[in-house]
Design a protein around this nucleic acid. Structure first.
Lengths: 137, 137
DNA sequence: TTAAAACCGACTATTATTGTCGGTTTTAGT
DNA sequence: ACTAAAACCGACAATAATAGTCGGTTTTAA
């Protein structure tokens, strides 16, 4: 089966943690311990998410991270998109620096529309679930 | 976005080619040329598909490959599963030599069920489309 | 002033992907 | 029987992506 990178899994876990603790700012140390994610790697991941605007940070002592919006306003699809990077389930679908290896068939290719359809269905699934849904159960 | 490997893309294209030419046996040379897939790589891919039983081969001169079933009986999900290998969208979901890196949280993890849900939705999409559907349009 | 935190860029190790190569075996046609 | 075309096979190699590490700088509350 197609794999989700552990980066994305870590990232989602971190986001869920922030959603569960949305009253306070959470330090990387805290998240890293609670979720058993390597500290330095987590930093890179969270910094990436922060740049996307999904979370915000407070620097200095007693600093940390917190959600930029309420958990019910954060779709899991947004998180996955930020961390998985590249656009397109297959390389011949659009680019946004997922690098488009131009398929030599393009026009005639019967599979392109198919992959597009799968991609849409996947995105639909991801966008139908929010962080609030995840912490609800 | 999550990526489908080019191996799987090649494999699907090859299968579509066989579906379009289901009257005859098609040689790798022929498929490779028509679909612009590196010959040696294609061989590896097709050999893998053959072992799964989705296609059959005839050896020797005038040999080649052909579908083991009618295109309407071959779900795209089967092809993807064979080529993508590993089970589970995330590593903590089952193993079948996708190698399970055991998640230290397991029980408490709120995200596992989520990934499972996404995986199901993806499989459903893939299993709802057959080779016949692809060549129909 | 100090300690705890975010922030940053470069580096490294490991693994997966995408091929390539050199050969063997099988088979139809001559 | 010989030849050419094909499948079949295992090992190798190059590249890219992933996962993780490291050494520092900057900011801020106490």
């Amino acid at each position: 089966m197609i794999r989700i990178s552990t980066k994305t899994q870590y990232g989602l876990r971190a986001m869920v943690y922030l959603a569960k603790n949305k009253k306070k700012t959470c330090s990387l140390k805290e998240i890293s311990k609670a979720e058993k994610i390597p500290f330095d790697y987590l930093e890179k991941i969270v910094s990436r998410i922060e740049k996307s605007g999904l979370i915000e940070s407070k620097r200095g002592s007693h600093g940390g991270y917190f959600l930029a919006r309420s958990p019910s306003k954060v779709k899991t699809g947004e998180i996955v998109r930020v961390l998985e990077g590249r656009e397109g389930l297959v390389s011949c679908i659009a680019d946004k620096n997922g690098r488009k290896r131009n398929c030599p068939l393009s026009k005639k290719c019967l599979t392109k529309k198919f992959w597009l359809r799968i991609q849409n269905s996947l995105e639909k699934a991801l966008n139908s679930i929010t962080l609030a849904n995840l912490i609800a159960k």
